[in-house]
């Protein structure tokens, strides 16, 4: 209950709250100019109503000192032969805004705004949406890892060997075991989708495609856990290896960071991780809503299905060996 439902919700709220400040964006921008100091505000209409406070300075040195001390986030120097931007390396967003304003305060302003047909992409994925999806995937992997590890301990504790002595056939026992783990994962994902939708208003996208992707994600989690559990170490160490591997995969898959500024290399790495593919698929479904098609999730489905097949096959082969040991002992 704690790992399956409570912690994912707590972490979703925590991370989403941490990145919610973006929506209340505000900055102080120093500006030095001989003419109309507020013209920059006019030529950047998107910021006319946004809280970009323009602080006038008499000269460049004063503006520079204000940036260095943190009194203003960045400064634009206009009115000379060419505009200049004074930025502090630690404040990238104000630096970007200042540069944009500086471009427009030059002669570009007269030419700007005439060749784009602006089309709204249809909204925005909120931090809450992104991290609800991310934490659902993360805690699914934890839950499935716990279940697969218990199954492994049953194998090593000769429980399967004992079951082999009952009238149940090995394939029936294995189907029951894997079916139960699969159902457990699906229930967790279903509950988290429902809770995040009802409580936080997260829109996961088209239900049918979400359901198909959820099936593949649970399968992939089962596959990854089945592969990890084969590492030949003591059970306590196996538990730690599993947790650490899940966290490492989550970090590589970009699950702890908002996608806006994540370096391109994470896009490439995430494509090789099943959790990264799941995140990509679910966020695309949430972003595109009714516009999403089966093609939207084709790549995540293919990758995750492959991981699921390999991992579960490995788990079944290992379980059959455990049954054979039981048969051998009986004879």
């Amino acid at each position: 209950m704690l790992v399956g439902l409570v912690l994912p919700v707590v972490l979703t709220v925590l991370i989403a709250a941490a990145f919610s400040r973006e929506e209340s964006f505000a900055m102080r921008l120093g500006i030095t100019a001989t003419g109309d100091t507020l013209s920059a505000r006019v030529v950047v209409p998107g910021y006319a109503e946004d809280p970009v406070e323009l602080i006038p300075f008499n000269d460049r040195a004063a503006a520079s000192a204000a940036v260095e001390s943190g009194h203003v986030d960045a400064a634009v120097v206009v009115g000379g032969p060419a505009p200049a931007v004074i930025v502090n390396g630690y404040r990238p967003v104000p630096a970007r805004v200042a540069r944009a304003i500086a471009y427009l305060s030059a002669e570009d302003a007269a030419r700007a705004g005439s060749h784009v047909q602006l089309v709204s992409a249809g909204g925005k994925i909120r931090p809450l949406d992104y991290f609800a999806i991310s934490m659902t995937i993360l805690f699914l992997t934890f839950l499935i890892w716990g279940a697969v590890r218990s199954f492994q301990e049953e194998k090593e504790g000769r429980m399967l060997a004992r079951l082999a002595a009952t009238p149940s056939r090995p394939h029936e026992i294995l189907a029951g075991k894997y079916g139960a783990m699969f159902a457990l994962g699906l229930v967790q994902v279903g509950v988290l989708i429902a809770v995040s939708g009802l409580v936080f208003g997260v829109n996961w996208g088209q239900p049918l495609l979400v359901a198909v992707l959820a099936l593949a994600t649970v399968g992939a989690a089962l596959g990854v856990a089945s592969i990890l559990v084969t590492v030949p170490v003591r059970p306590e160490r196996r538990a730690l290896i599993g947790m650490v591997s899940m966290f490492l995969l989550a970090v590589l898959g970009g699950q702890f960071f908002p996608p806006e500024g994540l370096p391109d290399v994470f896009d490439r790495i995430a494509r090789f991780t099943p959790n990264g593919q799941a995140l990509f698929g679910f966020t695309n479904l949430a972003a595109l809503g009714k516009a999403s098609t089966f093609g939207t999730i084709a790549e995540p489905l293919a990758v995750m299905s492959a991981v699921a097949c390999v991992g579960i096959l490995l788990g079944v082969v290992s379980a059959r060996r455990a049954f054979e040991i039981g048969d051998g002992a009986a004879k």
């Binding site: 998107g46 910021y47 967003v93 970007r96 005439s114 047909q117 602006l118």
Partner: peptide
Amino acid sequence: VKVYAGEGESAVPALTLVDA
């Protein structure tokens, strides 16, 4: 050209630079 813009803080300054 058609330009998709989201609602993030980067959209407006990026758009102005693209336009320029």
